[in-house]
Design a protein around this nucleic acid. Structure first.
Lengths: 195, 195
DNA sequence: CCGCTCATGTAACTGGTTACATGATTTA
DNA sequence: TAAATCATGTAACCAGTTACATGAGCGG
């Protein structure tokens, strides 16, 4: 029936429409824009075509109403859209969805031997520092909004915090390793010349 | 000088070339294909144009040699490529790089009230189960290869394991919450009808 | 000489980004 | 009434995916 598997952004859009009963492109943009994650973008250039696409696939129904010289489009979940959404929230989760996520810091870690020991240390320290900032921001956000959040939003945020905590701990583990390991810049410098 | 910030895949390519001294598109593909993460793809359609692009920007130098009727292209890091690579591995890390990662399970968690309590439970149980499988796979992989890995590869893998452990713990926390919270299907069914 | 792996590509497509453009409504 | 915010879009571009196509070298 439906060929292409929907993207996460598309599914998230369906979920927002379902949660709110109905939604406009603008509402969806605001929702996405409020996210603390850089993964979600609220650019008009992605949202407007996306909703048209979902309507084209029959997952959303559009209701238009005049609005000055323009047209206001409000979307509701169709029956087949509901089905897609339920599938998204039901086992089995796709294989890739439960693996480790993509972490730019971790990727760089694999290649850290390409720079000098002192640069490594600075890199890891910086990473820990900045992750700590994100962590604090998340904790404050959760503390401040706790009362107005649904249990699911709270659990979700706790997940993000747990992930950040794990990363800080890991980076401290790396730092400890760096301090204990042999490695002085002069030794590196010699070998680096050769390459 | 250089307008567009390079993608992570491009930077990773530079790093692989630097690590190996020189590399062909095929070597890079194999490297990417071996990754346990679904983030990295080894499709020819991305790799070959990517290396051409990097050469066009002056970050890689190509050395061609005849190979039957075809041409073999081997890439080495140029001086400016080395500079870009060092920037990648030096503070300050970009803001987005140190935030929480994109986690498909967590995203779904925010919308879990759209399905019934029993479906929620099944979803979370499935997620925990599958994350556990990934975790075990990673632990085995690390145990098996530890001897042949560089310290950086080991630390990187430990980071992935730490992240997966944190997710399992979080999902168990969610599960405990589900068990303790009120929530029976009949109650949900009634309110779900209305929407 | 057959099949496998090593190896090199191309073409069509697509989802998302960036940058631009503008109308309607509310608030100070 | 001016500025801010709410709201709706478009067009050019681009990285990466999917699917296809094929040559080289080697072991049985």
């Amino acid at each position: 029936m439906t060929k292409s598997t929907p993207t996460e952004l598309e599914l998230c859009a369906l979920a927002v429409v379902a949660r709110d009963g109905e939604a406009t492109a603008y509402r969806l943009r605001r929702f996405l824009g409020r996210s603390l994650s850089s993964y979600w973008s609220d650019s008009a250039g992605s949202i407007y075509p996306l909703l048209e696409r979902l309507e084209g696939r029959g997952w959303l129904e559009v209701r238009t109403s005049p609005w000055g010289t323009r047209i206001r489009r409000s979307y509701r979940l169709s029956r087949s859209g509901r089905r897609v959404l339920r599938g998204w929230l039901s086992p089995p989760l796709p294989e890739e969805a439960t693996g480790h996520t993509y972490d730019p810091v971790r990727t760089r870690m694999f290649f850290l031997d390409l720079v000098s020991p002192s640069e490594r240390r600075e890199f890891v320290r910086d990473a820990r520092e900045r992750t700590g900032v994100h962590l604090r921001r998340h904790r404050e956000d959760l503390a401040g909004k706790r009362a107005e959040l649904t249990p699911w939003a709270i659990l979700g945020r706790e997940g993000a915090i747990a992930e950040l905590e794990a990363r800080v701990k890991w980076l401290e583990h790396v730092l400890a390793h760096l301090d204990s390991a042999v490695g002085n810049d002069s030794g590196y410098a010699r070998s680096a010349q050769k390459d």
